[in-house]
């Protein structure tokens, strides 16, 4: 179990805010815990806040990709937010491309991206929560007329 990194609930998403220099075992523990929590809470998204992180090496970078892949399998989306410029420059030099990971400048923008992604992948459960409107689940034309959930 990872006591190092608290996993918080943020609406229909989980928020992980990395504040300390993690050793590899903690990183793996966090990854496991997240998978469990996504399933347990039915979260639709994961936000990993790394604004306090001063280096991202290949191990942590790989965790981001794994969590993104894993959450996709569990029908959730992952956004990494707050990467510092020096960290980004270093990652490019290291050759790590964070495949499949979405990123945003800060928490607020990450939240907005998540809302958009989740709106694109609404589930029966989400629709059941909208009591006053009918939304076709099968929408071959791809033209959905739903309110932007971020504005609610």
């Amino acid at each position: 179990m990872s006591q190092q990194v608290p996993v918080l609930r943020l609406g229909n998403a989980l928020l992980v805010s990395i504040q300390v220099d993690l050793q590899d075992d903690d990183v793996l523990a966090l990854q496991e815990e997240l998978a469990e929590r996504i399933v347990a809470t039915g979260a639709r998204g994961v936000i990993i806040d790394i604004s306090a992180v001063d280096i991202v090496d290949s191990f942590i970078g790989r965790m981001f990709s794994s969590i993104a892949a894993l959450s996709r399998v569990l029908d959730a989306e992952t956004v990494v937010v707050g990467m510092r410029p020096a960290v980004a420059i270093t990652l490019v030099e290291l050759g790590l491309s964070l495949d499949g990971v979405r990123t945003a400048l800060d928490l607020e923008k990450g939240r907005a991206i998540l809302d958009r992604l989740i709106a694109d992948r609404r589930t029966v459960r989400d629709i059941a929560q909208d009591d006053d409107e009918f939304v076709p689940i099968d929408d071959p034309a791809g033209e959905r007329h739903q309110p932007d959930p971020s504005r609610r």
């Binding site: 590899d24 001063d54 280096i55 991202v56 090496d57 290949s58 191990f59 410029p85 020096a86 960290v87 420059i89 270093t90 030099e93 290291l94």
Partner: peptide, 17 residues
């Protein structure tokens, strides 16, 4: 510089691992 620090620490992390 901050960028050079970050590069060096990242390299050290890889090599130590």
């Amino acid at each position: 510089s901050l960028v050079d620090q970050t590069k060096l620490v990242t390299a050290a992390s890889e090599l130590a691992r």
